[in-house]
Design a binder for these strands. Sequence first.
DNA 1: GCCGTTTTCGGCCCGACTGTTTTCAGTCG
Length: 573
Amino acid sequence: MPIHNSDVSEILREVADLLEIEGRNEFRVRAYRNAAQSVENLSKDITELVNEGEDLTEMSDIGESIAEKIEEIVKTGSLEQLQEIRDRTPEDLAELLNIEGLGPEKVSDLHEELGIDSTEDLKEALDNDEVRELEGFGKKTEEKIEKNIEHELNEARTRLDRAEEYAEPLVEYLGELDAIDDITVAGSYRRKKETVGDLDILVTCSDSEAVMDHFTKFEDVADVIAKGDTKSSVRLKNDLQVDLRVLEKESYGSALVYFTGSKSHNIELRERALDYDLKINEYGVFPEGEDESVAGAAEEEVYKAVDLPFIPPEIRENRGEIDAARNDELPNLIEIEDIRGDIHTHTNATDGSNSIEEMARSAVKLGYEYIAITDHSQRVTVANGLNEDELREHMEEIEAVNDKFDNIEILKGIEVDILEDGTLDLSDDVLSELDIVIGSVHYKFDLSRDKQTDRYLKALDNPNIHIVGHPTVREINSRDPMDVDLDAVFSKALENGVHMELNASPRRLDLNDKHCKTAKEMGLKIVINTDAHSTGELHKIKYGIYQARRAWLEKDDVINTRSLDELREILKR
DNA sequence: GCCGTTTTCGGCCCGACTGTTTTCAGTCG
């Protein structure tokens, strides 16, 4: 089986986690984490690099020792060192670190004092009120663990970017087979939902037996769950289940509609079909009482049968798209080519990996007209946030680099921390000298709804703020959104000419699709940014575009589709 | 374990907050 970048980084992270629980040198632990991040950020395939004999120590945070380990992982699929550590320390202990509030020391205590080896053991201990008895633990800690443990158990859905990492090679592999004609990954994957439950692949072909053989022999397959003439199911080694369905050409379109979903979109569509005395199912469109399909080879046909235009998969969520289609009011959804610049990026001045110049060069390659450098402010100490003097120096540097480029404009910005009381982390003086000020929350996520809302409302009254970054601070599968009255925040933003960010990081996607749709309906403008911490992350803008399309956003709803001059005009308050 | 306008070993981000304590360890970002 080929080893993907995420496989390598996962192994390195597990080594780090277990070493940390064992109480090993924290810098050694961090070295493994940094290396994992470095592999994850890589835009190239790690297996390819190893096979081509590239010197991995050229990569940042990878030295001789870890380079050897990565080669071992790529060549053997596993790491002997990890096996040895697992023999000493139960591997399931590492998953406890994902529970917010539990760090290495507490996990170690739970293991040593209560013999807890897994999340299951921890649940049992919680039920028996054993945890609160431990020294260093109390009632509040217990409550916090109890609340956060559920997240870990519910992590069934796979993030879209992770699913893509497996789906794309699989589709390419299937495509190698001459017997296959059409191939589409349907389901929430096709609707570009932020997470997917499993993958549904539909194909048409001339030889289904050959297709099923080929499919079940895919190198990432860990388990063949079922293998038949029209449907086979496998589990990939990352636990993702994949169903492959072989279809007749004449029902490919109706099957696409059926398996792309969403379920409630399909129900709505079928109800509409009843008005036309038609029955829609995955095999076609059938007039009442007949068993001969009148449409179904292509999706367009199916929609046309009920007098509707084609509806883009991203908006098939039964959020009004069928009515809109009926009234010829479907949105003209934004495309990735519409984006003219990324205005939330970080450099090695704070916690990014690349220089201003490197970021700008990569932005040029993407065809951008502008890029804003928006590093962290002083409060975000962990990221080496800039104080006023450092920011002024940084601004001069940005200007100097900008002078070297005549094919892109590098804007001076900051991602300024919104403090607990709603004030900004830098003086109005220095903020007013910047092209772009993004206000973001990085601390105190658990204020009451009223306080959290007031915090934003006050921040938005600062005349220097242009954009609210990752407004809810949620992280998919790991951190809930803050409790905040977004309607009130949106209203204030609209009033004050502030724009809301759709953070395109596939880990965040914040605002989410629903929020963005609400914002649009209120007349608020969105900005889609990657929040890139390295040049390799700039291309993740596509996840923001997916989410924007799911939110019905059109080119005009997004301010970084504008030319530089127009953008500058929009940013004036 | 990585890194180096330091070539060989010392430094590596560190301040705020929480919950537990009663002066501080652990966790977070």
